[in-house]
Design a protein around this nucleic acid. Sequence first.
RNA 1: GCUGGCGUAGCUCAAUGGCAGAGCACUGGUUUUGUAAACCAGAUGUUGUGGGUUCAAGUCCCACCGCUAGCUCCA
Length: 739
Amino acid sequence: MCPVPVMILPDGSQKSVPSGSSSRDIAESIGKRLAQAAIAARVNGIVVDLSAPLPDSVEPQTLQILTEQGDDSLEVLRHSSAHIMARAVVRLFPNTQLAFGPPIENGFYYDIDSPTPIREEDFPRIEEEMKKIIALAEPFERFERTVPKGRELVQGMGQDYKVEHIDGELFKYPLLSFYRQGEFVDLCRGPHLPHAGRVGAFKILSIAGAYWKNDSSRKQLQRLYATAFFSQKELDDHLKRMEEAKKRDHRLLGKQLALFTISQQVGPGLILWMPRGALVRSILENFIRDELLKRGYSPVYTPHIGKLELYRTSGHFPYYRDSQFPPLYQHPAAQAIDLLQHRLSAGELSPEKETEMEKFLEQASLSIPGYAAAKTQAEKLAIVDAFSQELLAKFQIGIPGFEKAEGRDDRTKLLLGWLENQEGYLLKPMNCPHHIQIYKAERRSYRDLPLRLAEFGTVYRYEQTGELSGMTRVRGFTQDDAHLFITPEQVEGELQKNIELVLFVLKTLGLNDYRVRLGLRAKGSDKYVGSDDDWNSAEESLLRIVKALDMTYSAEEGEAAFYGPKIDFVVRDCIGREWQLGTVQLDYNLPKRFDLEYIGADNKAHRPVMIHRAPFGSMERFMGILIEHFAGAFPFWLTPEQVRILPVSEKFNDYARSVESRLREHGLRVTGEYNSEKVGAKIRQATLDKVPVMLVVGDKEVQANAAAVRHRIKGDLGMIGIDALIGQLEADVRSRTLV
RNA sequence: GCUGGCGUAGCUCAAUGGCAGAGCACUGGUUUUGUAAACCAGAUGUUGUGGGUUCAAGUCCCACCGCUAGCUCCA
C-alpha cells in the first residue's frame, strides 16, 4: 500500500488524502470559505505554501490552515510584499541588483543596489507599480533547481549578490528554491501568499543605507523599508499608533517639559540637565543610594580624569582609543608622537584597518607627508618612522638611546617609553580603574569581602556621530556604577543579589516591558580573555541564577563582554529601538591586569573576582526611557512639580501662598500660579505641564482652611482640609505609588 | 564613520529667485475670574556657519556644523 498523508487538524480530526495533495486540497475539502480565506499552512509546525505537496507518511502529521489572523500569516504577507516591491523597483529602475528582502517585526524591507539611487520622491510611483502588480493577482509559483542550475539562473538574471549568496552559503543545500511571479523570479525560501491579490494594504516608509551582509567594509546598499497588512484599516491603525508613539519621544517631551537640553555650543551628545529634569534625576539617585546603603555598599567619589598609564594597564587605552576623546598631554608634541607610535606599533595593517587608520589621522588633522600616497605597508611604516624622527628633532626632544637604536622596532619601544613618562590624562571612559585603586589602597583580607564600591561615576566616550541620539546615546554620561570585589565562592550569591536589585528597581518604576539578555561568549572566538574554566563556571552561574529566579531570558552568543559573561536588561524606546539599561557583568580580566589580591583564610594571597553592575545603566539613558515610559507624566513621588496651587482670583493669592509654604515645609514640591488668568486657563497650563495635583482655592476653601483637589487625570476630587491633604500626599510619596 | 532627509523668532510652522510672516510663548495694560485657552497692545530674526552664482538668495550651487531615520559600532 502506498503511503498517503494522514493529517491531524487542530480540532483533533484526521484526514487522509491521496499522495501529492496539498494543504489547499484539504482546505477545499473542509469548506469553500476556508479555502478562500487560507493564506498558508502549518505542516508539522512549519509554515509552508498552501500549494506545497504534503509529505507522504503513514504516521499522522499535524496540519493547520492559516488564515488572515495570526503573526505567521502576517509574516508570509510581508515576505510576499517584499517580492512585489522588488518587482516594482526592478521594473522602474533597470539593472537593479537585489540582495535580501525579509519580513521584520512591523513590516519588511528589501536591500537594493540600483545604478540610479532611489529617492523618497520615487515612493509614489513605486507604490503605483506595486498596486498594478497586486491588481493582477498573479500567483507565486515555486520551483526548485540544483545548486549549479540555480546559480546559472541567477547569474543569467545578472543578480550578482544572489550568486555570491549561493556560493557563500546556499551551496550546502541540495536544492535551491525560487518563486516566480509574472516576469519576476527571485531566489527565495518562501513561503508565500497564494497570489499577490491577497495584499490588502501597504506603504513604503523610508529608505536608508545598509551594508551588504552587514559588513561595513562591503558595499553600502539602499534599504527600502515598508509595511503591509491584509486590510487598509489595519494599516491605518498601525500608522496611527506609530504617530501616537512618536508623541512620547523623550527628545520632544524633554523640550516641552524643560527637562533637559543639548547645546551646540557645549557639544553634541552632552546633556544639560535643566532644573526640572535634574530634580527627577536627584530623586532617582537618592532612591538608589538608599537602597545601596541598605545592601552593604560603600559610596566613593573619584575624579573625571585619570592618567593614561592607568588606562594602558586596564587595556582601555589604546584598545578603544578611537571611541574615546583624545588624550590630554602636557607636552605640545606628545599627541602627534602618540599617534605615530600607535601607528608604528600596529605594524602591518589589513586593508580595512589601513583605511581606518587614514581616517583616524585625518580626524586628528595630522597629515604625514607621503603617507597616503605610499603603496606598500613597508613604505608606510618607513614614512611614519622617518616622520617621527623628524618631529623629535624639530621639537628638540632628546630620547636617550634613540640615536643609537637599532631599527624601527627599537625606536617604537623608545617612543612608547617616552610617552609613558609624559604627563598625560584621559577623560575616564570607565570607573573601574579608579575603584580598583581604592581596593588596592589597603591590604585586603577575605574578611573584607565582598567589598562593594559605589559611585555615580561620569564617563566620557567619543561615540560616532551617527550614533548620537537624545539622551539614549551620548558622549558623557553618569553610570550608577559599582564594583564588587569578591572571592570566587561569593560569585553566585552576589550575582543573584544584584539581579534582584535590578528587578526591584525596574518594578518600583513600573518598567515591566523589558527583556533579559544573557550575554555569552561566541564559541571559537579569540576575542575573550580568561581561562575556559572561569568562563564555563561563570556562564553556568549566570544560567543557574536566571533559572532560579524564573526569568524569561534569551541566551545570546557573542554578546558577552570581552572579560566575562553578563546579564543585560533591554528595553525599547517609543520607536521600537532597543537599549540596554541595567547590566550585571562578571570580570576576571581586570583583577589580573591590576594584580589584585586578598589574603585568604589560608594566609595566602588569592585573586578576587570583580562584578561590574549598574541597575539604571546610565542616568541619561534611563531618564530618556523613563520619560517615554511615563509619556512625561512622572508618578507623584518622582515628578519635578508635584502640586500647583491655582487661586480662583488674585484676591486669594495670600491664602494660596500660605498653603504653598505649608506644603513646602512638608517636603512637597509645590508652586503657585499667581497670574491673572481665569482658573480654566491655569488648569489647562498645569495639565499640559503634567503636574499631577492641582489645588484650586477660592472663597469656600479659605473659609474651610481647605483646597479643592483636581487630579491631572481623575479630574475634580472635591474639597479637602489642608492637614488631611498633606497626610495623603506624604503617603503617596512614601509608597512610591505609580499613579 | 556611511547613506538618505532636514535646519526660518524661545516653540510649532508659512513665505514662485523679488519688502521674512502666523499661532503659541514672552512683555505691558485692562479684566478679578470656580475646574482644559478672557481681551487689547507691544517686542521678538546674522533664515545653522562660511563661500559662490545672480540686478536680487530663506529659496540655486559648494564646503563645514548640527539634528534626524537606518546601517556599522557600543568597554
